[in-house]
């Protein structure tokens, strides 16, 4: 009896904490990115705010060594790279000129100039300060938060392509889920053949291109870009390249393996697109109106 009495508080504590964890997981799962539950404040936000400078400080000596080494090595073949880039620049200028001529000839340049404003989204440069502490999830911590205008649900890109999506924000830091994460799914199309599919993260350095209808034209080396469907990511952002295509056999769908356009191992700087996709805007319009006030109209654009 005495032993039972002494164990009762411990048992109650364990049951209470397990119940709390399960409820927290259910609530977290139900709250989509962009919801008010994802905007951390108080002590939970403080942990994220503290983590960013602490991680930056810890990584500083490694960064310094790595940068010094990279710059030294890159200087060794800077002359050759420069010559190669000049040739490429000339070729691209020539191609650009030809494309402009073709557009003018078809009378579409003026119309393109008009609709271009729709695609111009303000970008916020951010520094990647840390990665997910668990090897089973692929997310990163960036050093920009709500005070900089970042909200959950905003896409994150780099100069090479799509990086991921802001999932949680605090005042001065944000957590972004990478497209590599097992929870990530992006609607994509093959740039060349316009075949559609879903780009799913595998939790590793590769991704899957799923739900591609049998007979779709997918080849090794094809570039996959975001389709804009789903309303989370804008259309036309480079996501990955096809490295292998599986034989569908008798299945209705085929799958391809992809390597991301972004080298996530060397990712240092990213850009947060300061505009949510239409789906996020629709889902959280009320919250944004209350939260962002005047800046909402600026972000939603024309």
């Amino acid at each position: 009896m005495a032993e039972f009495r002494s164990r009762t508080p411990v048992t109650a504590l364990v049951v209470g904490l397990v119940a709390f964890a399960v409820v927290a997981m259910v609530v977290d799962r139900r709250s989509a990115p962009g919801g008010p539950e994802r905007e951390l404040s108080g002590w939970t936000g403080a942990i994220l705010d503290i983590a960013a400078p602490v991680q930056k400080m810890i990584a500083f000596p490694f960064d310094l060594t790595q940068n010094a080494w990279r710059h030294y090595v890159s200087l060794l073949d800077a002359s050759d790279t420069n010559a190669g880039l000049r040739v490429r620049l000339a070729a691209l200028e020539e191609e650009n000129l030809q494309l402009r001529e073709a557009l003018i000839a078809t009378g579409r340049l003026a119309r393109i100039a008009e609709i271009r404003a729709d695609f111009e989204v303000p970008m916020l440069p951010s520094e990647l300060v840390g990665v997910d502490p668990s090897p089973w999830f692929r997310s990163v911590l960036v050093d920009r938060g709500r005070v900089h205008g970042v909200r959950s649900g905003m896409p994150v890109i780099s100069e090479h392509g799509l990086v991921g999506l802001i999932t949680t924000t605090s005042l001065r830091a944000s957590k972004a889920m990478l497209v590599l994460d097992r929870q990530s799914a992006v609607d994509g199309i093959i740039q060349r053949s316009r075949s559609r599919g879903i780009v799913r993260g595998r939790g590793t350095s590769e991704m899957d291109f799923e739900f591609v209808t049998r007979g779709s034209d997918v080849r090794i080396g094809d570039v996959v870009i975001s389709s804009g469907l789903g309303g989370v990511y804008p259309k036309g952002i480079r996501i990955a390249e096809v490295v292998s295509v599986s034989d569908p056999g008798s299945a209705l769908m085929q799958t391809a393996k992809l390597v991301p356009a972004v080298d996530f191992g060397r990712l240092e700087q990213v850009f947060v697109m300061l505009r949510r996709g239409p789906t996020m805007e629709m889902l959280y319009a009320d919250e944004q109106e209350g939260d962002l006030g005047t800046t909402a109209s600026e972000r939603s654009g024309p």
């Binding site: 964890a21 399960v22 927290a24 997981m25 951390l40 939970t44 994220l48 089973w136 999830f137 929870q183």
Partner: peptide, 12 residues
């Protein structure tokens, strides 16, 4: 809080 996991997952 620092991971991309569900809230409560690491706790459990």
């Amino acid at each position: 809080l620092l991971s991309g996991s569900l809230l409560g997952q690491h706790m459990l």
